[in-house]
Design a binder for these strands. Structure first.
Lengths: 354, 354
DNA sequence: TACGGTCTTTGGAACGCTCCAATGGCTGGA
DNA sequence: TCCAGCCATTGGAGCGTTCCAAAGACCGTA
């Protein structure tokens, strides 16, 4: 009679294990077993307990479980400050996949802010340490891993389970990660352009030194060489900003390229701008491609051919890797490289007849 | 000696209140007081306890605190499925502000997925109910509130603290919320265009029925009337999709408008497309404005004049409202309307000489 | 009827913290 | 000297769960 079944009180049912036990005529431990190790119970007892559980709208108290089992079933994820959104145009999709998968595995995502720079006491790891110190989380999902990122090594050293979106860019590989094969994505782009008839294909990237950026540049170079095409003087670099990119793209265009492969959608947009400033039409006069398949790619005219990172799969895999690591800290590391997908739009067409 | 200060073990210090108490020569309760109600202690005792705390690297165990105080210090936030990203182009900023503010107030954000549609058992509220039943969260932050959204009423009825980003669009106002004054934002846009010399200003919105969309349309109408300008036949509508918007924008352009005010950046991009299809130049031939100041607005050519929603402030205020509601469930409701900021770029210029 | 073995259920304690009520020390006034 | 009154501190219990070890039920066999 405590609560109507199917419509438990919102704010915690107020029903405890002990109450259910009394009603079912068993001990609290048996109710606990009914929920956590049903195979231990005799079928009729199990049925009786389950009925009591349902009738009373019982829900276990997470804090009590966490205290006893020393596991919060929470996964920490650091949200990046906005001004570092360089490589995070589509993080919504990632976060959703993370939450969804975690939830299906009985866990949830806990957000926290961590300054990636060394400011704040204790450096960039202070926030991670804090969460662990209070037994707040069972592990972490990392993203935006960068060259010289201290996090993986630190977490591994302290025996903390984690899974990263992004490989380790310098030194030996550490821990479990999923990443996108950026080089392969760019190679697919080049192959596509070559199939259309392009030969003078430029690359507009970021300044050397960023892991993902150099990876993408490698893909371009590799594909060009595979097709026997020259890369000399066909490469320009700019920060990830449309205005700056426009200038860099200009120098590329002046070399007479018929297509520009950009390392990000933002850079590609800079290329659009450079073309328009010259009275040229993106797509028609010079083909342009981006990377990320951000909302801007769909919305712009002409639609931007881009490389779609499978964010949902990445999120799913990251959580899976973490769950397995938590279940078995000794298992061998797993490292996944996912292939991105080429999304064709109007910005890539056969070159103008020369 | 348990742990080196400044470098506590990562995985929970392993130090408990009782250990600190023993070392400081006081009772556990006194240590607890030192941390939670320092004003109760004699200064010298406080100092002694604090020293012990620091020396041993003590951190309270969140689960134990949560169990005893019946408060998890967690705030639930439902991440939207990606395909419903209509009004969520810049949620990253919002989430960051949420996390940051919550963290400063000693709370954290817990993500969960809730299908907004009625699918799944228990309808759209099942996920909220689940979180409450297990005492997982102290309250919720809502976003993407829509006409007929059942959440506010349900939460209020069950006495659950919450704060919404978005007013209640139908019926009486419920609970605490922050929202952006979309009408005012659009009015500012119109004022700006009028100041440039425009008179034939069209509005490209969403189909009637969405709260935010109708609000923005109202702003346009109000400003037009204030300036004594006609709105007849100057309004078109489309789903939030560049391709569809392009068609709708075309009909507007055919009426001879010199400027188009769009209800979103995506719609504005559709307008760019319609102009280009007609061999016209956005900005030069027809001024265009958007709403959201999404990344696309910066990146596109010409840069899109848009209305920036102060996502950081919204997130901050939402958490503040929630914290105050938790602290005092009886306090009168607070409802905030924040003014968005006009961001001028190259897409708005004086009309061509007629 | 007694007995070893398996399967099922139970009792008690413990996780680490904070609530509540009560203790003891101290001061100042009668 | 004694006691009321205040302040700082303490003891004990309990939040709701699961761990561990042990008890009981039940079976077939001797």
């Amino acid at each position: 009679m405590a609560t109507t079944p199917g419509r438990p009180a919102a704010r915690g049912s107020g029903v405890t294990l002990a109450m259910v036990a009394r009603r079912a005529g068993v001990s609290p431990q048996t109710v606990s077993n009914a929920l956590n190790s049903p195979e231990l119970l005799r079928p009729d007892t199990l049925a009786r307990v389950r009925q009591a559980v349902d009738a009373m709208g019982y829900r276990p108290h997470r804090a009590a479980q966490a205290l006893r089992t020393r596991s919060s079933r929470l996964i920490g994820y650091a949200v990046q400050p906005v001004d570092v959104d360089r490589s995070t145009p589509v993080m919504d999709r990632f976060l959703h996949a993370l939450s969804q998968t975690a939830q299906e595995a009985g866990h949830r995502i806990l957000l926290f802010v961590a300054t990636p720079a060394d400011d704040g006491p204790g450096g960039p790891l202070a926030a991670y340490e804090e969460l662990l110190g209070t037994y707040d989380v069972d592990g972490f999902v990392l993203s935006d891993t960068d060259r010289g990122d201290p996090r993986q090594a630190w977490l591994e050293k302290h025996g903390v389970p984690f899974a990263a979106f992004g490989r380790v860019w310098s030194g030996r590989q550490i821990g479990d990660w999923v990443d996108v094969d950026g080089a392969a994505g760019i190679e697919a782009v080049v192959d596509h352009l070559v199939a259309l008839g392009h030969e003078r294909i430029g690359f507009l990237g970021w300044p050397r030194g960023s892991g993902a950026g150099d990876d993408r540049a490698t893909g371009w170079k590799r594909a060009m060489q595979r097709h026997g095409l020259s890369v000399r003087g066909r490469r320009a670099a700019s920060e990830d900003d449309a205005e700056q990119a426009s200038a860099a793209a200009g120098t590329l265009l002046d070399t007479g390229v018929t297509a520009v492969v950009a390392a990000s959608d933002t850079l590609a947009m800079g290329c659009y701008r450079a073309l328009r400033e010259r009275g040229l039409s993106p797509g028609e006069d010079v083909s342009v491609t981006g990377f990320d398949d951000s909302p801007a790619a769909t919305v712009v005219t002409p639609g931007l051919t881009s490389v779609d990172q499978p964010m949902a799969s990445i999120g799913r895999e990251a959580v899976r890797l973490l769950m397995e690591r938590i279940a078995d800290p000794e298992r061998p590391h797993e490292q996944l490289l996912l292939a991105p997908a080429l999304v064709l739009r109007d910005s890539t067409r056969p070159p103008r007849a020369t």
